[in-house]
Computed example of a mutant assay.
Amino acid sequence: MSPEHGPRRSRVVTVEPALTQLSKLTASETHRLDRAIVAISVSPQLGTPVPGTLLRDYSDEIDGVRIIYYVTAMQTITIVAYVEA
């Protein structure tokens, strides 16, 4: 019997403005943000589309994080443009 595999995750890339924001977060904020990034890497359609753009906006009210991102056409790479925790 072969082991069951979880859903395929997209590779997450963070662009420079988001990297700058990440460097200012506390360890706790980074941990909360990591959970949200894993969620969108598994299910990129979680965020709501930003009208007139290719961007998606994902907010997790429980962890208090927000991520603005877009996903490549093949949904293999999620590019994070903005983070807030």
Rank of each mutant, 00 (worst) to 15 (best):
P3A: 10
P3G: 09
E4A: 13
E4L: 07
H5C: 03
H5D: 10
G6E: 13
R8G: 04
R8H: 09
S10T: 13
V12K: 05
V12N: 08
V12R: 14
V13W: 04
V15Y: 01
E16Y: 07
P17L: 10
T20K: 10
Q21L: 12
Q21M: 10
S23T: 13
K24N: 11
K24H: 14
L25A: 06
T26I: 03
A27E: 11
A27I: 04
S28N: 10
E29F: 03
E29A: 05
T30A: 01
T30C: 01
L33Y: 00
R35K: 06
I37P: 01
V38F: 14
A39M: 08
V42D: 15
S43W: 13
P44N: 03
Q45I: 05
Q45Y: 03
Q45M: 03
G47Y: 09
P49H: 08
P49C: 06
V50H: 01
V50M: 12
P51L: 04
G52P: 09
G52C: 07
T53E: 15
T53R: 15
L55A: 14
L55Y: 12
R56P: 00
Y58Q: 02
Y58M: 02
S59W: 00
E61G: 03
I62L: 14
I62A: 15
I62C: 07
I62F: 13
I62H: 11
D63I: 03
D63H: 14
D63R: 11
I68W: 00
V71W: 13
V71L: 15
T72Q: 07
A73I: 06
